[in-house]
Simulated scan of single mutants.
Amino acid sequence: MSRFLKQRMSTLLMPVIPGAILTIFIFYLDYFQFKLVEKFILFAVFVIVPLVILLLRYDEKNKQQRMVYALMQWLQYPAALLTLFSVMSNKMWGYEGTSIPGMLSLGWLVFTLLLGIYGISIIVIGQGKAAEIAIGAGLVYFFIGGIWFTLYQYQLDLFEASVATHALSSVHFHFSSAIVPIFIGALGRIMTKKSWYPWIVAMDIIGPLLIAFGMIFSKPIEYVGVALFACNIVVYTTYLLSYLRKNVLHPKATFFLGLSCMAFYTVIVLSILYPLLKNIFALTILDFIPIYGALHAFGFVLCGLIGWVYMLDSIQKKNNFQGE
């Protein structure tokens, strides 16, 4: 079984490697003259989502769930390429203002719909378990992110919100809204059951919706959502660090998950020190946004996903050893 898991991990990592290389080119080559928000969307498309798929597990007895999982594996990279072509057609190929970027974005929308369907199947099969609800909700949020991306590529003004808001909403649902519930759900699968855990899951599901609603309609509601979400991540990272300290796991799992937690705390510290740093170094919020974005996307999210992949491998090996 352990050998099978290694082969499975190797197979699933194959689409991540070229996608990661392509993402580096997108961020650093002048040829790709994309907005920063578009670069982060493509990073999620080519790197984050494949790692999420690697973390998912399915019921061997459920044929429908196995079929959806296989479709996600096969369609992820073609859908990611269509997403890249959608952005390129808008920024580099002269089709801005036409329906072509929007039509190309439909490939990613359909793929995120598959993620959402798979998330609903996890919730149904989990029969009310809080951890499964969290993971399923995170996958559904990817679909919402796909909707916002398509609206952005079609340049549609929904709810009287600007097109730029659609792009920010897409990034929000591809990263924080989707990933944090998945992290908290993954933690719930391995932690000792706590009475407070279902409440954390509930707030974790409501928080992203409040943030998205507030971004469009009401700043105070957005602040409430951000506060709830931040408190949830504090609980998650604190418990996770305690778990890592008490349990002997794969060294790489401990390293990457610890790095993920430290990246989040760095964002918190920078946020607290922002007024002081702004005055000392004459910086503006626009100078800090790329720093916050990089720490969250590459630190908290990417390192966290890599860490959970190694955690899954470590726990599987431990269970196989005990079963022998």
Rank of each mutant, 00 (worst) to 15 (best):
T11I: 12
P18L: 11
A20H: 08
T23V: 08
Y31T: 13
F34C: 06
E38G: 08
K39Q: 15
V47F: 02
P50G: 04
P50T: 06
P50E: 05
L55H: 01
L56Q: 09
R57D: 10
D59W: 11
E60F: 09
A79V: 08
L84M: 10
S86Q: 11
M92C: 04
W93L: 12
E96T: 06
E96L: 12
G97L: 12
T98A: 07
P101I: 13
W108Y: 14
W108S: 10
F111H: 14
L113H: 03
G116F: 00
G119L: 06
E132M: 08
I133T: 09
G136N: 00
F143H: 06
I144A: 05
G145P: 07
Y152M: 10
Q153V: 08
L156C: 12
L156I: 15
A167I: 05
A167K: 07
H172Q: 05
F173K: 06
H174S: 12
A178G: 04
A186K: 08
S195F: 12
G214A: 10
F217W: 11
K219R: 08
P220E: 02
V224C: 01
V224F: 01
L228N: 01
A230Y: 00
A230L: 06
T237F: 00
Y239K: 04
Y239A: 07
Y239P: 00
L241H: 01
L241P: 01
N247R: 11
N247K: 11
V248Q: 13
K252I: 12
A253S: 15
T254K: 15
F255S: 09
S260W: 00
S260K: 08
F264K: 00
I268R: 01
V269A: 13
S271K: 08
S271W: 12
S271P: 00
I272Y: 01
I272W: 07
I272N: 03
P275S: 12
P275D: 07
L276Q: 14
L277Y: 13
F281H: 14
A282C: 02
D287M: 07
D287I: 00
A294L: 08
A294Y: 09
L295C: 02
L295Y: 03
L305P: 09
I306W: 03
I306M: 05
V309R: 07
S314T: 13
K318P: 00
F321L: 13
E324P: 00
